[in-house]
Write a protein that binds this DNA or RNA. Structure first.
Length: 490
RNA sequence: GGCCCCAUGGUCUAGCGGCCUAGGACGCUGCCCUCUCAAGGCAGAAACACGGGUUCGAGUCCCGUUGGGGCUACCA
């Protein structure tokens, strides 16, 4: 029994897409579940589309999600190198074997010719397959073409028959060879196409299971033909359904955030994104929904992967993220929140230890009522700065009322004398005042919240009061009383 | 167009012939709790795409239709 080896093989043409991230996740889960190896390979054979920063983004995205790989371009491994552009000699060697055995042939057709053929076929309502013009060129004809300076592409000879793809998710899928033409395996610039490079690498890297998106199911018979032509045993295949945008179209930039990097920037927690991606197209079979990475590995069963495409829904991801924010250890949330707080200019990049205690307190107060780290930073500004504006709605409701300033000053007085100045002590002082004035709690509490935070919503008032400390509360109440005096109506 | 895959509420899904008057989650609505907002609790609206079969019995099996997606590049 050979060992389990899976791979994630993205092209460095952009950032890590959530579709790609999910494919990586299923591969990773499979490897971790069954004690196999997870290999990372860069498929950079389309020189024109490679982006210099893409590799870095992809590796960082995977690392951020906690999907660690055992072999890859950055860390090497027994089957290095892991970038296809560094393996060209290997592909040439294998392609050479195909030519020697007459299983592949040189094609001198120019792109313009092929485009014309294709358009003609389509206009006639026929399938746009390669016409086979160069299939049986003799030595002489080839030399003539070469003499003209034409560089050939290499095509695989597809013989009549059929190929059956045995897919772990979809069962046996039959493809008739008359629907597949002699496809190109080496471009005229000497670089292999996806099909050849993929097959050669999966074989040489001893990949046991190819887990990839469903868009590759139709490509699989071509690759199976290559395995056969090269005399190799193919791996097992598992084609997972795709992720679609809310309009049922394939995910693209115009659908908003689709890159892992963007979710990170928008303040989503990696565990939440990973958890959400796992739930798209897979279910544990019971009714659990929230999983840590470890729980995911334990619960993962390939047979529980669904066959149909899934539309991704930001609302559920947002909900999951909120779950993580409230349930993760506080220190982890604080660590994740720090860059967002610093980014909003609320705290320094590297806060001093005594500052950290306060930040911890604040994060703990707000984390249960926000969904993302970005929201968290956005809802905590008043804890860190004294300059803020008051919500208009609140001003109208609580300041623009007869006696508003006086009430705020009475509250201020109560807080000035509250002992001890903690949640219970300040609440006691306020409750006493409320009783004395014979008013409802909200009558005093709501204006106070507005005075201290500028907002009408937020954590419990006495939690805020205790966190801010006596002096800041007194200052803000005095300032708010002035404001109230100026807008008060009689 | 040809080939391939897929089809349970708005979304993610459970269901693998009788346990289904179709279960859970997000979202939505109402109520409770309450200093606000969340959270939490309770209640509710909301689905087996359609048509034929097979069977004593079909969401579950088969066929067709419709719909969606993918492939059909010297992209991967």
């Amino acid at each position: 029994m050979s060992s389990i080896r899976v791979r994630f093989a993205p092209s460095p043409t952009g950032s890590l897409h959530i579709g790609g991230a999910r494919t990586a996740l299923f591969n990773w889960l499979f490897a971790r579940k069954y004690g196999g190896s997870f290999v990372l390979r860069l498929e950079d054979t389309d020189l024109g589309r490679n982006l210099p920063e893409a590799e870095k983004h992809i590796l960082e995205g995977l690392a951020w999600l906690g999907l660690d790989w055992d072999e890859g371009p950055d860390k090497g491994g027994p089957h290095a190198p892991y970038r296809q552009s560094d393996r060209l000699d290997l592909y040439r060697k294998e392609a050479g074997r195909l030519i020697e055995r007459g299983l592949a042939y040189s094609c001198y057709c120019q792109p313009e010719d092929l485009t014309r053929d294709r358009e003609k076929a389509q206009a006639e309502g026929k399938p746009p397959l390669y016409c086979g013009r160069c299939r049986d060129l003799d030595e002489k004809a080839r030399r003539e073409k070469e003499a003209l300076g034409l560089k050939p592409a290499l095509r695989l000879r597809v013989e009549p028959g059929q190929t059956v793809v045995d897919d772990l998710i979809r069962g046996q899928v039959v493809f008739l060879h008359e629907t597949i033409d002699d496809f190109i395996i080496v471009k005229s610039n000497g670089v292999p196409t996806y099909h050849l490079a993929c097959v050669v690498d999966d074989h040489h890297m001893a990949i046991s299971h190819v887990i990839r998106a469903e868009e590759h199911l139709s490509n699989t018979p071509k690759q199976l033909m290559l395995y056969k032509a090269l005399g190799w045993e193919p791996p097992a295949f598992m084609h997972v359904s795709m992720i679609l945008a809310p309009d049922r179209a394939k995910l693209s930039k115009r659908h908003g955030a689709t890159g892992v990097e963007e979710f990170r920037r928008d303040g989503f927690l990696p565990g939440a994104l990973l958890n959400y991606l796992a739930l798209l197209g897979w279910s544990p079979g019971d009714e659990r929904e929230v999983f840590s990475r470890e729980e995911l590995v334990a619960a993962f069963m390939p047979e529980n992967i669904t066959k149909h495409a899934a539309i991704y829904d930001l609302q559920k991801l947002t909900w999951l993220c909120a779950q993580y924010l409230r349930n993760l250890p506080l220190d982890e949330v604080v660590e994740r929140a720090l860059p967002f707080l610093a980014g909003a200019g609320l705290v320094p990049e590297n806060p001093a230890p005594e500052e950290m205690a306060y930040i911890r307190k604040v994060v703990d107060l707000v984390r249960t009522r926000v969904h993302t780290l970005a929201e968290l930073a956005g809802s905590a500004d008043y804890f860190f700065k004294d300059e803020f504006s008051y919500e208009d709605k609140g001003v109208r409701k609580y300041f623009q009322k007869p006696g508003a300033a006086d009430l705020l000053l009475k509250g201020r007085e109560a807080l000035a004398g509250a002992e001890p100045f903690d949640e219970a002590g300040t609440e006691k002082a306020y409750r006493d005042l409320i009783a004395e004035l014979n008013i409802s709690g909200g009558t005093l509490i709501h204006p106070t919240r507005l005075a201290l935070t500028g907002r009408t919503v937020g954590p419990g008032l006495f939690d805020i009061v205790a966190a801010l400390g006596r002096q800041r509360c007194l200052d803000r109440l005095a300032k708010a009383a002035e404001m109230a005096t100026s807008v008060e109506t009689s």
